[in-house]
Design a protein around this nucleic acid. Structure first.
Lengths: 347, 347
DNA sequence: CTGAAAGCGCTTACAG
DNA sequence: CTGAAAGCGCTTACAG
């Protein structure tokens, strides 16, 4: 009792025309008279015709589908990114196949292969590592893709990959400057995954500011947090047990900052009285009253949105052959966790 | 300079066999000698063959792709749901096309059509309305789908749709009971979208408990929040301005509860001293120190996971023809926003 | 403007 | 076990 799928051949039979005529009529192409066209469209509606996009994709070699590779849907940073990509995709009539790697390189490779096999027209990848082994293959195969959030750092790929990223260097720089101006000299940093460009850049930015002040970070205050809430929590617990504990912690994303906060509060430390805290990303939850996380705002939505647009431009070859490199600006968002509102800048 | 896609015909030429032989070899089917099989597999690897899943889907009428329709990726409730679906899909080798409707029925219809056209093997839909106009068509067409989170309430569809939902009635009941036992008599409710079964059931549960106590809710304390943060905020502002304001607010999801909290704090009301607050869902952010939202825990992840498994069972027809109706239990999570820890139950 | 043929990259079914 | 044919539902290119 399975209801058979209705195809253009069925419609052709009813309309007494050839099936290519139906195809042309439905796709608004010349090759069929206006009267016939209207008749065919009417019949298609009546019989509830759904075009088979799989067949169409096979013959046109275009699926109007994009792959999106992210790390972790539970991290609001990625949620916002997905939202931006979806908005763009919706506007231009593409659909999204969502793939989550959980920071696994094997998983990334698996999804890259699957997405290509599934005939997506291009891939938006937010999980690339600094020395990513997969990107060069995509380039060699001339498969359309765009990096967002993170870029490969191999020199040889420098002018070959389109990307849309955040100005992570400035995020690190501005966060550090804020803490320094508040009088902090002993600042711990909990970084992202240091094999990823965004984390590397944030750290460089933080160090860059210190360098300008002829300061250096005490290596014991530098912890790799891998964007993991648990690692951030544990790192914080260790940091505050130090003989000379930090007076401030700079977590290189808000997701980790929230865990740092939990760790501090669990240890009965007051923020910012006992220790200051600043994050990066400006995720929505950081702004809740009582959290009031000072942070660096980043245009996550825009990054996804623009990334998708850049990719589709490439796919549709509407632009001349060129590589687009887009860097979105960042801003300091002062809330309560650094104590600025109470003390103001000291220097 | 576009690099041509490698197909089984290319491999066939190299291996000096017919292309169906290659297909059989690569799919581990009988019909080709073991030696040849190994040779073919080796060649495929060497030339970097990616099978064209679009072609495969066309001939097999199976794409190993699932559609997932949600309302709003920014709501952590849906994020968790997506995560569960993804986990199941990953385990069984399916990919997910993600569609977001933002509570728009037109959008839901659009995506339902697109997903079918795209040849997904089935659809997981979490956005169905109580009187949903689209579900009966899916049933008529015998298109595999499963409802999660929400179900249609039309009597005629009663025994025709598979679903995995939460025990929303109990969520409403348990939340109300908790507040009542703490001594509250004037409890406001901010509901979800009352054209959706989950919101209706939660409200029924809350009313159900009151009825047992021979109590009724004052209509002025009942507000439809539509799962929107803004509406919850505004509703709260109105509620506290009432001549007889409520002593407690029961928000029918945590996302709204967080906005209620903002509205209360913005009005300098203390939680729970001035007014108690309870949500539903147990989203991660509600558990942060300083938020400490009392809530009803729900197995959002499990709902997605089981939903996907039920759907695939149906698609693969491994089970006898039957309808699965699964209801997941819920639990009261006592934290700080109702003041239980300070006062204990009064009755 | 109209119709019949060829083909997208696969798999299935059927001769040898 | 092996090979050639047919077909999935479409679109494109080419005769009439």
């Amino acid at each position: 009792m399975e209801s058979k799928k209705i195809t253009i051949k069925d419609i052709a039979r009813i309309a007494k025309v050839s099936h290519p005529a139906v195809s042309m009529a439905l796709n608004n192409r010349p090759g069929v008279g206006e009267k016939k066209r209207q008749e065919i469209i009417k019949i298609a509606k009546q019989v509830g015709y759904h075009p088979n996009l799989v067949a169409k994709a096979l013959v046109c070699n275009r699926s109007y589908t994009l792959g999106l590779i992210i790390n972790n849907i539970s991290d609001q940073f990625y949620t916002d990114l997905v939202k931006g990509v979806e908005k763009a995709a919706d506007e231009i009539g593409y659909n999204i196949i969502l793939c989550t790697t959980n920071e696994s390189l094997n998983s990334q490779k698996k999804y890259l292969d699957i997405l290509q096999s599934r005939g997506v027209d291009g891939i938006i990848i937010s999980t690339v590592l600094a020395r990513d082994p997969h990107i060069s293959l995509l380039i060699k195969e001339q498969f359309p893709f765009v990096c967002i959030n993170r870029v490969p750092l191999n020199r040889s790929l420098n002018n070959k990959v389109d990307y849309v990223i955040l100005d992570n260097y400035s995020s690190g720089y501005k966060g550090m400057k804020h803490l320094w101006k508040l009088g902090h000299d002993r600042i711990a940093i909990i970084t992202g995954s240091l094999n990823a460009s965004n984390a590397i850049d944030s750290l460089e930015g933080a160090k860059g500011f210190l360098l300008e002040q002829r300061l250096k970070i005490d290596p014991i205050l530098l912890r790799e947090g891998n964007y993991s809430r648990r690692e951030a929590y544990n790192a914080t617990k260790q940091l505050i047990k130090l003989k000379k504990p930090p007076t401030a912690i700079f977590a290189h994303d808000d997701n980790m900052a929230l865990s740092v906060r939990e760790a501090l509060l669990d240890s009965d430390l007051k923020i910012p009285e006992d220790i200051a805290l600043i994050g990066i990303d400006n995720i929505e939850m950081g702004g809740l009253t009582g959290i009031d996380l000072t942070t660096i705002s980043q245009e996550k939505n825009e990054m996804g949105y623009i990334g998708a647009k850049v990719l589709v431009k490439k796919i549709e070859k509407k632009a001349p052959i060129m590589v687009e490199k887009i860097v979105l600006g960042v801003d300091l968002i002062i809330r309560m966790t650094c104590g600025y509102s109470r003390y103001g800048y000291k220097r």
